[in-house]
């Protein structure tokens, strides 16, 4: 009884050579170090005094509020339109579906400064909107939200798409034969089974919106979001002056990321229960 598994074990070991594992670990740690080192360095270099100063920094606090609210607005508005799009992509087969999926991904590959310029042609001063509304959305919180939404909405749509795709369509079909309308099936079967993944996509989109710099700075230098504030202080006053604002921004994003992992964790639990 015991011999067979042991024999298999040693064959297993021979296949996975230790030197190879060593190389994997070494190369892998370079990547991890590369990510972690700057973050740890900046945290260590920032004293509590500086952070305390940041807490009393009116301009910084205003910019953080603006950034969080603009990103949240972008996320909520896009949830109303992006989640149905995700459902459509997951459930329906139609001509042009692949092209539609590619279009959704476009904002990820377009350089964000260029995306900002492109947005100006739609919401800027010279655009139709600009001629009607006296200046368009340039330099407004709404404009900032639009810029954030443009660059971060793919994360929400793609998360919704895969969330709905993970719901077995047989459940929806069984519900239809039991007498539920398509809308009721969506509300009572698809959405309850997909909402955690969608929520993950929303948090992801929010975080991506907060960290956006390129597209936002084209649309609005003022009012100033935190990434732009960090950039400005670095340019005007140097490293020491921008550090505390940068640390605060990093901490906010890490906090959002932790929330995202927790949401994803629930998802993991649910998947295991399903299996």
């Amino acid at each position: 009884m015991l011999v067979a598994p042991l024999a298999r074990q040693s064959a297993h070991d021979r296949r996975r050579l230790p030197w190879f594992e060593l190389v994997l670990i070494l190369l892998g740690s370079v990547v991890v170090l590369f990510i972690v080192a700057p973050l740890i360095r900046i945290l260590l270099a920032t004293s509590f005094g500086e952070l305390g100063g940041a807490a009393r920094d009116e301009q910084l606090i205003e910019s953080i509020k603006l950034t969080l609210v603009c990103a949240a607005t972008a996320t909520l508005v896009c949830t109303v339109t992006g989640v149905p799009l995700g459902y459509l992509l997951a459930r329906k087969r139609f001509p042009g579906r692949a092209a539609l999926m590619a279009i959704v991904d476009l904002p990820i590959v377009i350089p964000h400064s260029a995306a900002g310029i492109a947005l100006l042609t739609v919401i800027g001063r010279q655009s139709l909107l600009g001629s009607v509304t006296d200046g368009g959305l340039v330099g407004t919180a709404a404009g900032i939200s639009v810029a954030m939404a443009f660059v971060s909405v793919p994360f929400l749509v793609n998360a919704s798409h895969s969330a709905f795709a993970a719901v077995p369509s047989r459940l929806e079909r069984a519900a239809r034969t039991l007498g539920a309308s398509p809308w009721r099936v969506f509300r009572t079967v698809s959405l309850p089974l997909a909402w955690r993944d969608i929520l993950g996509g929303m948090v992801m989109m929010w975080g991506r919106g907060i960290s956006e710099f390129g597209a936002v700075i084209i649309i609005a230098y003022h009012p100033m979001t935190t990434p732009i504030l960090v950039f400005e202080r670095f340019g005007d006053y140097g490293l020491a002056a921008s550090r505390s604002a940068a640390v605060v921004l990093i901490l906010i994003c890490v906090a959002i990321f932790i929330v995202l992992r927790i949401v994803a964790g629930w998802r993991g639990v649910r998947r295991r229960e399903d299996a």
Binding site: R173, A174, R176, T177, L178, V189, E273
Partner: peptide, 20 residues
């Protein structure tokens, strides 16, 4: 006629119970 108006209940091989 859409399925919800036919009232022909379909029981799938994998039962398709709503897990939530």
């Amino acid at each position: 006629l859409p399925p919800e108006q036919r009232r022909f209940a379909l029981v799938y091989q994998d039962y398709a119970l709503f897990p939530h």
